[in-house]
Design a protein around this nucleic acid. Sequence first.
DNA 1: GCAGGGGAATGAAACGTTTCAGCCGCCTGG
DNA 2: CCAGGCGGCTGAAACGTTTCATTCCCCTGC
Lengths: 337, 337
Amino acid sequence: MAIASIKEVAQLASVSVGTVSNVLNRPDMVAPATRERVLNAMNELGFVRNESARALRSGRTRTMGLVVLDVTNPFFTDVAKGVEAAADASGMIITLCNSDQDGPRERRYLDYLEEQRVQGILITPVAGETQRLEQLIDRGTPVVLLDHRATRRNRCSAAVDDVLGGRIAVEHLLDQGHRRLAFVGGPMTISQVAERHKGAEEAVAEAGGEATLELVEVPSPSFASGRHAADRFAALPAGERPTALFCANDLLALGLMQGLQALGLRIPGDVALIGYDDIAYAAGAAVPLSSVRQPREELGRVAAELLLEEIDEGERHRHRQVLFEPELVIRESSVRS
Amino acid sequence: MAIASIKEVAQLASVSVGTVSNVLNRPDMVAPATRERVLNAMNELGFVRNESARALRSGRTRTMGLVVLDVTNPFFTDVAKGVEAAADASGMIITLCNSDQDGPRERRYLDYLEEQRVQGILITPVAGETQRLEQLIDRGTPVVLLDHRATRRNRCSAAVDDVLGGRIAVEHLLDQGHRRLAFVGGPMTISQVAERHKGAEEAVAEAGGEATLELVEVPSPSFASGRHAADRFAALPAGERPTALFCANDLLALGLMQGLQALGLRIPGDVALIGYDDIAYAAGAAVPLSSVRQPREELGRVAAELLLEEIDEGERHRHRQVLFEPELVIRESSVRS
DNA sequence: GCAGGGGAATGAAACGTTTCAGCCGCCTGG
DNA sequence: CCAGGCGGCTGAAACGTTTCATTCCCCTGC
């Protein structure tokens, strides 16, 4: 059952192991006839390279780690697609890890990735888990932040301007005449959530006067949390309800929409709704959902390219922080009829 | 920048490398005082185990591969979650690969996984790519089919009865009084698609009489294909249009719904619609989508457990084929008003 | 007082590659 | 005819672990 090794191939082809290795890694350094012989031996024995031995000896692997907050969120799978495309183009392989917004889980994955000696790591970190990353960098594993701005200058990042995104979402709601607004999102420790909220606050502040922004904090930016939030909203006396809700992401917004409709509230009539990410399902929702679009695949692609660059350049690499601009997508859910 | 090895740790702690290895793998075989000393040395040096060396020497890794057809399909991410949960419980790590329904791509990933000497592979194979799997099994890598029935008895599988699923979907449409039906899906080489279609045909045949089932083949069971299919549908003279559409999956159904509505057709008034998978977004669609629910997470969990079992039992393992039953979920999109 | 046992640690082999210095023959140019 | 060069190959070291036979001591029981 054991797979043939280079040594057995060498024996069968009557060459040295060095030659077999050369056939594998620098085929043109070996004479065509010999190469042929070796190749045949490989086929006959069903030879499969042992990546562990290769990595051990050469000191380099061909894998990069990607750690996301939630694999079931289409935002992240789209980003992952972009990452994969870029990696693929450079012959790299991605190990996709799902931290599920859990610190210990994230740490376990990072441990694993470091033990694997991955060439680099792309990560949307769980709130506050920055120390472990610092450690990775110190020990020589390049880390690129994904959908998260690098505050220190010692790493690369690819992100979208969430403050701006929050701002344009709320400006749009204000334009529609809403004055009593709420931001639905959480936990506020997630930087994306906090920044979107900040942008929202800024927009409200600048609008001056009577506009207000309430904060409806939810335990996680998920579909289920959205449904729960609907109950809390409906429990408010009609007079105290905000007239427009800005959700930290589309999952939340879609869950909220479903909950609100189940309770008999109309969108946008009773309450306007806008989400964030513009995932594919936003446009096809019961009421087409307005949202703030992020360049998801591009975000992933650029992040991966930054990492590949860093891996390639080594010591002389200059860290870069790439920031994309989000784009407002207006649909029915936020438009006054 | 190079990470400290076991040797340096041994030196600093004034013990042999064997002892350091024991601290790592059989801590209770080493005296507490020594253990402490070694642990301190590890901390001081920032020691990180080298998984390649470990795997090379011990001959076993702690990773399993998961190959899916489309990471952006929520069905698969839900399945992946189940797989991960089971793997996690056994201290295993999952490498998630996305074949994107592309044969060569799938083969590249399988090569990679075999070179990594993963302990086993969970896969929803691309149509017809069975030869490579046979090879993997022959060489000793256990393979469990996921969402795909094993026809040969030489492997385990966890799947849902797609023929039955197709049948109940269509029986429901017939119940609603529809007689002119169409199955929207493709490519028919995907076994899930073919089986759902088969179930649909059976139901129509048994209904006897005037009921008909047209086949609308699309290039892939995706959102985009659904949108395109809508145009084709609308291009038919009104008299020749089916009155009910059964889609091979929800992505397709949601895309189709969006396309049909954009063309001014009403659901279910002008045409009834039913999907497959019951992904989270089905219930929140413009018109809540009827669907055939599969136990997604459980499917993943059970598949992973089968694989773990096989890894554990080795030679004396008996292959098992687990088959789940799908469940009809009726919502507005298929109900005659 | 001694044989025997057992807990704790050692040292070296082995895993399957890559890498590199060196060797061998043959060809070329002077 | 010979020096030099070069293409093609060999052989062995090295990568960082795990594993196992072996050694070393100290303790126990007779």
